[in-house]
C-alpha cells in the first residue's frame, strides 16, 4: 500500500528521520514503535505531506506521492491524526466532524444560493453521519459543545472520529490512545479493528502502550534514532534482541531471558 524508500528528514544538522525504508501492507494494522524522539511523528509528517522530505520517496500503490500537500492526499484517501490533538476550536464537535468531507455541492456559491434543496439534503446526511460517529465514540453528549472546551482525551476521540467521516484508504494514527482511559482505549481498539475489517481501512499506528500494540498490530515496525531497526510479525519483534535493547529495556530483556 505505502512504501517509504530511503527517507531522510533533517532539521539543520539533526537527522530526525535518517534513511528509513519500510512497507505498510494493504489491509494491515501496522504498528510503529520506538523510543521518544525516534522520529515516528516526523515520519508521519513527511508521509502525510505536512513537511517536505530532505530526500527519499513515498509511494502509494506504486504512485509517487512524495511531498504532495495534505489536501491532495486527503482526496487520495490518506488521513492522519495528530499526536497533540487538533480541533476547530470555535466550532462544536458535530461541526468539527461535518467539516471533514470537503468538496461537495455547498462549495459552489451558485449551489448555496440556487440549489438549496440539494445542499440541505447533503447537510442532513452529513449531520446524521456525524451523530453516528459521535455515538460510536460514546461522546454524543458533546455534540453541541465547542471543541475548544472538551478534554484532551475527548479531543483524541474526535480526531479518530474525523477519519471515520469519509472512506479513507489508509489512516495514520499518532498515539490516539495517549491520555485516554482504559475503557475508552478498548473502544478505540474495537473501532480500529472494525474499520479495518468492515471498511477495509489500512492503519499505521504509533503507540507506546505495548499491550495495545500486541493486541492490535501485525506487523510491527521499530524505529530508533531515525532509522528502522526492525520490521516483521509482532511476536518476532517482541523477541528481537536489538529491539529489546533499544526500546523495551533491560528489565524486559531479563524477563524474556528468564522465560527463554
Amino acid at each position: 500500500m505505502i512504501r517509504v524508500e530511503n527517507l531522510h528528514k533533517h532539521f539543520g544538522g539533526f537527522h530526525a528521520v535518517d534513511g528509513a525504508t519500510l512497507e505498510i501492507a494493504k489491509g494491515s494494522i501496522t504498528g510503529l514503535i520506538g523510543p521518544n524522539g525516534a522520529g515516528k511523528t516526523t515520519l508521519f509528517n513527511v508521509i502525510a505531506g505536512r513537511l517536505p522530505p530532505t530526500s527519499g520517496r513515498v509511494l502509494m500503490e506504486g504512485e509517487d506521492i512524495t511531498g504532495l500537500p495534505p489536501h491532495d492526499l486527503f482526496h487520495k484517501g490518506v488521513l492522519r491524526t495528530f499526536q497533540i490533538a487538533h480541533e476547530f476550536g470555535s466550532m462544536t464537535c458535530r461541526e468539527n466532524l461535518m467539516m471533514v468531507p470537503a468538496g461537495q455541492s455547498g462549495e459552489r456559491l451558485w449551489n448555496a444560493w440556487f440549489n438549496r434543496a440539494r445542499v440541505a439534503e447533503e447537510e442532513a446526511r452529513l449531520r446524521a453521519k456525524a451523530d453516528e460517529v459521535l455515538e460510536f465514540l460514546t461522546i454524543s453528549h458533546l455534540a453541541d459543545e465547542r471543541a475548544a472546551n472538551i478534554s484532551g482525551g475527548q479531543k483524541k476521540l474526535l480526531e479518530l472520529g474525523r477519519t471515520m467521516m469519509v472512506d479513507a484508504r489508509i489512516v495514520f494514527l499518532d498515539e490516539v490512545g495517549a491520555g485516554v482511559n482504559r475503557t475508552l482505549l478498548n473502544t478505540i481498539a474495537d473501532a480500529i479493528v472494525r474499520l479495518n475489517r468492515e471498511r477495509g481501512y489500512t492503519f499505521c499506528v504509533i503507540e507506546h502502550d505495548m499491550d495495545f500494540i500486541g493486541r492490535l498490530c501485525d506487523p510491527v515496525i521499530v524505529m530508533a534514532e531515525g532509522k528502522v531497526l526492525a520490521q516483521g510479525p509482532a511476536d518476532a519483534i517482541m523477541q528481537n534482541e536489538a529491539v529489546i535493547e533499544a526500546y523495551l529495556g533491560r528489565g524486559l530483556k531479563n524477563k524474556a531471558a528468564a522465560h527463554g
Binding site: H86, S105, L109
Partner: peptide, 28 residues
Amino acid sequence: FLGNTRTGKSMRAYSDNEDLALLSGINP
C-alpha cells in the same frame, strides 16, 4: 456566507486550525 456556505465554513475552519483544515481536504 461565513455561516451558511461550505466555502465560508472552510474559511472559518482554516482560520481556526490550518493544519487540520488541510487534512480535511480543504484547498488552501
